[in-house]
Nucleic acid binder design. Sequence first.
DNA 1: GACCAGGCACATC
DNA 2: GATGTGCATGGT
Length: 216
Amino acid sequence: MKNTKEILYSIYQCLYDRYGPQLWWPAEDPFEVMVGAILTQNTNWKNVERAINNLKEANLLDPYKIQKMKSQKLASLIRPAGYFNVKAGRLKAFVQYFISHYSASVEAMKGEKTEVLRENLLNVKGIGPETADSILLYALEHPVFVIDAYTKRILSRHKILDGSHNYEAYQQLFHESLPLDTELFNEYHALIVRVGKEHCRTKQVCNGCPLSIFLP
DNA sequence: GACCAGGCACATC
DNA sequence: GATGTGCATGGT
C-alpha cells in the first residue's frame, strides 16, 4: 500500500465487499432527511425514527407547520430523539432558513452553489459541519464527504490522519483522494458508520474489524 | 450501573 | 486555540 489515495480506495472496496450497499438515507423525502440530520446529532437512529414517526402521525412533518408550532409542542413530539428542547430550537431555526431563503423548495435549494449552501447552513444555529454536510449530501445530492466521529477514529487508528486535525482537514483528505461523486460519498460514509458501530466504539479495540488488514 | 449514540453551542482558561 | 460542560432519550 503506497499512498493515502490508494488506502482510501482499498478501505472503501473492503467495506463494500463486506457489507454491500447501505441504502442511505432511510427517509421518504429530502425534507425528512434534513429533519433527520438534525435529530440524529449524537443520537441513535432508532430514537430518531420514533421522533420522526411522531411528527408524521401528527401530520406535522412539514416546514411551515414546524415554523408555526409552539416550541414546547415540537419538543414533546421529538422527545424520543433526546436533547428535545435543544433540537426543537434547531429545527425551528432550520425551517426558518429553509422558508425564508428557498420558500421551502428543495429544488430551489438544490440549485444553489455548494459553497454558498454550506456557509449558510453553518450560520444556522444548531447546524455544524457534520449536519450541514449530511444535508448537502443526503438531501440535496451535492458531492461533499461527511466526516463523523467514526471517520476520525478509524483514520487515526490506522495512522492515516491523526486525531488532532479538524473536521475540514479530514474532509479535504477524502475530497483530494476520491472523485467528487455523490453516490460514492453517500455509500462510503454509510459504510464507515456501519463498520464503526460494530468494531470502532471508543472503548473497544478493533475486535474482528475487517479493516484490521490496513493497520500499520 | 456504565457506556454509548450518524453533534453543537457556549463558557472558561 | 484548546478544553470542558450541558443537553436527554433509549439500547446494550
